[in-house]
Design a protein around this nucleic acid. Structure first.
Lengths: 192, 192
DNA sequence: TCCATAAGGTGAGTCCGACTCCGTTTAGGT
DNA sequence: ACCTAAACGGAGTCGGACTCACCTTATGGA
């Protein structure tokens, strides 16, 4: 079922064009661009759009997936280069900067964290695991507390990125990640 | 302009019925209930609904306002009864529990934090000020760090409540508030 | 090279839901 | 009882996501 013959050449081209048109639109902040517009921008008709993506939502999801995949890989990469605490710090900042690329993209992150969509299930899982490894390493090294799990932290981060309003938000997001970091560096758990 | 004659009796009744119907729908988790349905539930026609609320959105906003007002009053009340650190702790938990009332209501909080809507501007301001007073008191008492402002904390909380997915979220939200609290108790700011 | 054919593309049309408009009804003052 | 501004009703408009019957074209085999 996964290999039902490799898309015809023109089909693949159009698919690509659609994704890129949609990405451009979202990066411009036009998060509720009309399907008609996206199709036109890609030089195809709506019918074609719907041949490739079951629904507007599905297209959006697909656009975000790559962005998300990159992000998911980051914790692992950083851990190879830095001690856990530093890797964590860098990852948090990376996340915030990533969200800053454009209003549109932060919506992506919000979606990952807050959507039931099975599409992001996998991304969420991988990222959760990566964070868990990171936290475990820190815990073993004695620089991070051990009672917070990867998935929990993931949610906290989703929250941080969800607040994309007004000018000051970038600085505020940075402050908050600093706050979380301090919380994580703090030794003993207390009854919440 | 604010006092343009006190609504006719039937009008007030219907307005109330509409708000209550909408609230019921949202608490049931049916956050995208159709206006037609809400009107029917309230025993009026759509035209009536639109006489009272300019748009579907406006109705939703109105429904949430009360909820929000209660929440905004909380920090002040708690500060009268407890020392700052404890008041803060209780407020954070209150916030989480409030969001737990129903999926629908947590959307309200998310809106407050993430919407540009001027409607919530006021609520946001008041809550921000209340939190500032709380943080200042804690800072003066030496139990909370002084470099985080009310509005910043407000955003962090908005983030916490934005993650309303799957079973475990309540516990996770509690954990994260604990984390923030630890961060706030931590003394010195570090370069973020 | 050329044909057969299935994969792909098209866009007018359907569907659905938010919102409008104007004729009808009624609260409440005299 | 009567008047009228206020409120109500609900068929109709409008905009935007999605469909489908028909046309076009890539591609693989002769």
């Amino acid at each position: 079922m996964p290999s039902s013959r490799p898309l015809r050449a023109d089909a693949r081209r159009n698919r690509e064009a659609l994704l890129s048109a949609a990405r451009r639109a979202f990066l411009d902040g036009d998060t509720d661009a009309h399907v008609e517009d996206i199709a036109r921008r890609a030089g195809v008709a709506v019918g074609t759009l719907y041949r490739h993506f079951a629904t507007r939502e599905a297209l959006i999801e697909e656009v975000y997936r790559k962005e998300v995949d990159d992000l998911c890989a980051a914790p692992g990469d950083l851990m190879d280069q830095y001690p856990p605490e530093e890797a964590l710090r860098r990852f948090l900042l990376l996340l915030v900067d990533h969200a800053a690329v454009g209003k549109g993209m932060s919506v992506a992150l919000e979606s990952i964290m807050a959507t039931d969509s099975p599409v992001f299930e996998d991304a969420r899982t991988r990222m959760g695991e990566a964070l868990t490894r990171l936290l475990d390493a820190g815990s073993a090294a004695g620089t991070l507390r051990g009672d917070i799990t990867g998935p929990t932290l993931l949610r906290a981060l989703g929250g941080v990125c969800a607040m994309r309003v007004s000018e000051g938000w970038l600085d505020e997001a940075r402050q908050i990640t600093g706050l979380l970091l301090d919380g994580l560096r703090h030794g003993a758990p207390r009854e919440s």
